[in-house]
Amino acid sequence: MNNTTPMNVNTPAEALQIAEALFTAVAGTVVPHQVGQAWFASAPAGYTQKNITDDVEKAQITPNRKRGNVKLKDLDSLLAYCADQVASERAYIYADPDTRVICAIFNDQRDPHTAGWRDHRAEFRAEFTPEFDRWMSRNGHGKAMSQAEFAEFIEDNLADITEPAAQQLLEVASTIQAKTDIQFSSAKRLDNGQVQLGYTETIDARAGANGALEIPREFALGLRIFKNGGGYRLRARLKYRLVSGGVKFWYELDRPERAVEDAFGGYVATLREKSGYCVLLGAA
């Protein structure tokens, strides 16, 4: 049973007047109104109030302030973007050596009297080059290679090895690949610091000609450590182990983590010299 008292309407004109009054009352409650920097629209009693600040801003020609996260691919692009923002007095640039990420925050909280939203950023991540990844992936005793694997690896990556070791390692790889069955039996260190590996080549199921391979104890690499970055020189020690007539090869890069640190430190030095921003070591 409905206990609501019906409204008496005697004429169409009265009905129209009542409808207009109800419409005006309801419409008045949903008209957007501003409170400080926020916008609200109120619904009739029993309904919730909705914050439409973002909707109002999106309807404007331009936003109220800058925001967004830009991801850049080289340091020059980051420098150019920082220059365009003209925010050196209120921004910080954070350089994190652990993750190799450099992040500029243009609305940071550098001003001691003004809070910053910290949501307008430009980020550059120093990514390793494919060639540096390849050499790192086979670095160390645990990645020892068979004769065939070593020969193939040297040929595929010869462009990264500097002279004179490049030609000598190519000759070693070529000799290993050209001879179908060789048995390594001895190794001795030469006066020039290199190592001579003695071998016997098997021909027609019998022992054939004897030979020797001279391998360098050390060689150098010329690599770009980071994409779109400059070249870097790395030293490596070539190691071997005789195993059941064969030989296992591996190499050990000389402190590659130091090279990465130095290369990233070069980015930090460039930013401090050219950006005009305060550069901090750490994560944003």
Rank of each mutant, 00 (worst) to 15 (best):
Q37L: 13
V195A: 11
F40K: 01
Q85D: 11
N210P: 02
Y199S: 02
A236K: 00
F226D: 03
Q194A: 12
A19G: 08
I105G: 14
I102C: 09
A148V: 06
L213V: 02
A187K: 12
C82D: 10
S174L: 01
S186N: 14
G276H: 07
F150R: 03
R272D: 06
V247Q: 04
D156G: 02
F150T: 00
S186V: 07
N51G: 15
S42N: 15
C82P: 07
Y81P: 07
A205V: 08
T48M: 08
R125E: 13
N228W: 00
G276E: 02
N51M: 02
I176R: 00
L79H: 12
I52W: 12
A95G: 10
A126I: 01
A95Y: 08
L234K: 01
T202R: 05
Q49S: 11
S77G: 15
E218S: 05
P97S: 12
F40T: 04
N8A: 14
V172C: 04
D54G: 09
R237I: 05
R255H: 06
Q60E: 14
A43S: 15
Y94P: 10
T5D: 11
S137N: 11
V26M: 08
G28R: 09
G116M: 03
I105P: 12
L16D: 10
M1K: 04
V9D: 14
D119W: 05
T175L: 00
A236M: 00
V35R: 14
D98P: 07
R67F: 12
Y240D: 05
W39R: 00
R224Y: 02
E201N: 03
V31T: 15
N107D: 15
A207I: 03
L72W: 04
A19D: 08
D74M: 02
T24Q: 14
L280N: 14
Q194D: 15
P112C: 01
R110E: 05
E252D: 15
L253C: 06
T4K: 13
D156W: 00
K188H: 15
D54F: 06
A284R: 14
A126M: 04
P44C: 09
